[in-house]
Simulated assay, not measured.
Amino acid sequence: MARTYISPSKFVLGEGELKKLGEHVAGLGKKAVLIAHPEDFERVKDILDEGLKGTDYVHAAFCGESCDKEINRIVKLTEQEKADVVIGLGGGKALDTAKATGTLTKKPVIIVPTIASTDAPTSALAIIYTETGEFERYMHLPKNPDLVLVDSGVIAKAPTRFLISGMGDALATVFEARACIKANKPNMSGGMSTKAALAIAETCYATLLEDAHKAKAACDANVVTIALENIIETNILLSGLGFESSGLAAAHAVHDGLTVLEETHHYFHGEKVAFGTLVQLVLENAEEETIIEVLAFCRSLGLPVCLADLGVKELDEERLMRVATHACSDLETMDNMPFEVRPADVAAAIRAADIIGGTW
C-alpha cells in the first residue's frame, strides 16, 4: 500500500493575523458564511470588524454541537445566501461543522481557531456527535482546509484551560502513531504512514515536554511568547499532521467510549484524551518510565489522570462495559492497536489506569 501524507493547503500563525482574514477570503471568493458560536463571535468582534471590513459575509450562529441537524441547517443557509467561501471560527466543534459544510456544498474552507484546544483545525476529518453530545461517527472529508489562520494574540487571551486541553490531545499523537505503524495499519487518509509524519508526531511530544509550562505561564498572563506559539503550533499543526498521516488508536477510542458517561460531557476533548493515553499505555504494558513521564506531565498541568478527575465518582461494571464496548466498536480506532483488544481488556486497562493515576 502506498504511503500518504496530507495537510491543509496553507497554515498561518502569528499575532494579529485575524485582521487579515478579509484578504484571504478575497483570494477564494466574493461572499462568505461565517460559522461561529455567538460567544466566540462576540469575543473577537472588534478584530473581525477590521479583518472583514468590506467583505460580504453572513454570520451563521453555531448552536454548539457538531451534529447532523446543525450541519444541515448551515448547509441550507450557505446555499440560500449563495456564499462561495465557508469560514469556521472558534473551537473544535464549530470548525468541524464548517469543514463538513464546505464538503457538502463544495466550497473552499478557511479555519480560524480562537483556542488551541484540539488538532481539529488542520484535518480532513469532522467528528459528528448526537444533539446531546455523545460521539456518533467520524466524517472523512475529501480534502483538508484551504487555509488554517491562527492569531496567537487571540489564543493568548483565551482561558488557559483550553490550551492545556490541547496539550492533552497532542499528548496522544506519538503513542497512537507508533501503535498504528507497528500494527501496519492505514492512516486517516487510507494510506500508510510516512517517515515525515512520524517525525512530526515525535516532535509534537518533544515540544510538549520542552515548552508546556512556559506556554501555560504566557497564556496565564495573556501574552504571546515564543513558547506559547510553539505550543499553539504543536496543539494544532504538529498534532493534526501527526495523527492524520499516521493514525489514531486506543487513546481516542477510549475518549469516545467515555462520552457515553453523561458526567464526562463537561470535560474537554483533550482532557478525556489525556486519560485515554494512560489507558493505552496500560494496554500496551508500556515501560514504567514512560507511564511515569506521561503521568507527571499530566499532573503538572492539571490534566485528568483518573476517573474522578473526569467527574466519574462511581463506575459500576455495567457502565464500565458500555464505555469499553463503545471503544471497541466497528466505528472506532481500537483495531489500530498492534494486537487484538477486546472490551474486557479495555475495561481492565481503565480500572488499572484509574488506580495508577490516583495513587502513583
Rank of each mutant, 00 (worst) to 15 (best):
Y138D: 13
V58D: 09
S300C: 09
L258K: 01
G91L: 04
G302H: 08
F297W: 12
A212N: 06
K31N: 04
A352W: 01
A26V: 00
V279L: 02
A156N: 06
V109Y: 08
C298E: 14
L13G: 04
H266A: 15
K53L: 10
A324D: 04
I200Y: 10
M1Y: 12
V323N: 11
T103Y: 15
N187V: 08
K20E: 06
L295P: 10
A348W: 01
T122K: 04
H266P: 01
S239C: 09
L307V: 03
H140N: 15
F268A: 14
L310S: 01
A197E: 03
T118H: 00
T101K: 10
L301Y: 07
E202R: 04
R137H: 11
A156W: 02
E244H: 10
N187Y: 13
E210G: 02
A183Y: 09
C204Y: 11
G302L: 06
E229L: 03
A183L: 05
V58A: 08
L104H: 13
S245L: 08
H265P: 00
V312L: 02
G92C: 02
E131I: 09
T132C: 02
D330K: 15
L209M: 11
A215H: 09
A344C: 06
M188R: 09
G102K: 03
H252E: 02
A170R: 10
I350N: 04
A353H: 05
E81I: 08
